[in-house]
Amino acid sequence: MNQRILLATDGSASARSAEAMAVNLCNHMGRCTLEVVTVIHPQVEKAAYSRAHPYGAYSSRADVTEAERLLSEVGDRIRAQLTNPEAKVYEQLLEHDSPAKAIVEEAEATGECGMIILGARGLGGFESLALGSVSSQVLHAARCPVLIIKE
């Protein structure tokens, strides 16, 4: 198992459970990296292509601020609970029109993904669904192991 863990979060209850599991795993491992990601969907249309916004759309300032706040909140909470000095945590804000694609691409970009950890169901969608659309898509698309955590 590669020592790089990607934790996808959106601040939902099941993401919180996934976060706890990620912290616990990291505390038991030796040297490891925990990458915390959240994805925002660019909403505002933009005319010209730019490197920073390859999908031709801007995310609104409010969305970016909200996502950054969530990431730093989650990152701080994780750092407070980490007892393993060899564990490194960093946060990454992703912009993509498909959250699942963004998560899988990010995890597999470096070719050394140990696992993806995510909650079974995020903020969107129906409460009765056992598995949300993002989790389901990640599960199908990812080549690395995917750990699904329920609330």
Binding site: M21, L131, V146, K150
Partner: peptide, 15 residues
């Protein structure tokens, strides 16, 4: 299992 289980489930793929 992934839909129905209440506990954590990890799915491993093979190439």
């Amino acid at each position: 299992v992934v839909h129905g289980a209440h506990c954590p489930v990890m799915i491993v793929k093979t190439d």
